[in-house]
């Protein structure tokens, strides 16, 4: 077996004389780009000197989250979801499928919905990130959050923050949705408890509530 099945069994074959362990030891140190080009990627890639190559160790990453600036040290492989949850303690976005299918980690990148599990934190640099913590609070619910409470569109609540984010983004693109549009437009989120019946009503209701007023 290869790949994932033995990801926990066998160290990967080393290339070009660099062993996995050497590689990982190097990972602890922040090394600026050009130096690593020769060791990490064979002969062919000739990066122009101006191109910064970062990592594989931790590098400075600046994230703009909910209007605040955070300067972090992250390996390039760290996802935005991991950075939000582990470094910034913003735990509203959940790790559920961790493969860009279920929507529980939904955040906004410049107001567009994104699966934070499928986005490298370093890729989010230069963008405005909004998490559920940035659109409302338990004492100041956004219209979508309010509608979720009203229609009991949540049970265990684990998919809920992702759904609230997805619904909010959906309503920005579709301020007057039909039921059919709601059902199609929220196909990127999954719930296990079975709260869809409430969510459908909540979205339609929130659309009405958001008419004319500003929202999250």
């Amino acid at each position: 077996m290869r790949g994932k099945r033995d990801k926990h069994r066998r160290p990967p074959a080393a290339k070009g004389g660099v062993t996995r362990r050497d590689f990982l030891r190097g990972a602890g140190v922040t090394v600026s780009g050009g130096l690593l080009v020769g060791t990490q990627v064979g002969k062919a890639a000739q990066a122009p000197a101006s191109s910064a190559v970062a990592g594989p160790g931790a590098v400075p990453v600046t994230l703009h989250v909910n209007g605040k600036v955070h300067r972090l040290q992250l390996e390039p492989r760290v996802t935005l979801l991991e950075a939000l949850r582990n470094e910034l303690d913003l735990t509203g976005a959940k790790k559920v499928c961790d493969r860009g299918v279920c929507g529980s980690c939904t955040v906004f990148v410049d107001r567009r919905p994104a699966y934070a599990c499928d986005l490298l934190a370093i890729e989010a640099e230069g963008h405005q990130i909004t998490t559920i913590e940035g659109i409302g609070s338990k004492d100041k619910l956004s219209p979508v959050m309010h509608a979720f409470v009203e229609h009991d569109a949540q049970q265990c609540g684990f998919c809920t923050p992702g759904f609230v984010m997805a619904c909010t983004a959906f309503l920005e693109r579709n301020p007057n949705p039909t039921l059919e549009e709601v059902e199609k437009g929220l196909g990127g989120n999954l719930c296990r408890c079975g709260t869809y019946a409430g969510i459908r009503l909540a979205v339609l209701d929130a659309a009405k509530a958001m008419k004319g007023g500003s929202h999250a």
């Binding site: 998490t131 609070s137 959050m145 979720f148 609540g157």
Partner: peptide
């Protein structure tokens, strides 16, 4: 309901 829908519930 509010603590959950606002993403503030700590699991």
């Amino acid at each position: 309901g509010a603590v959950k829908s606002s993403g503030r519930a700590r699991y």
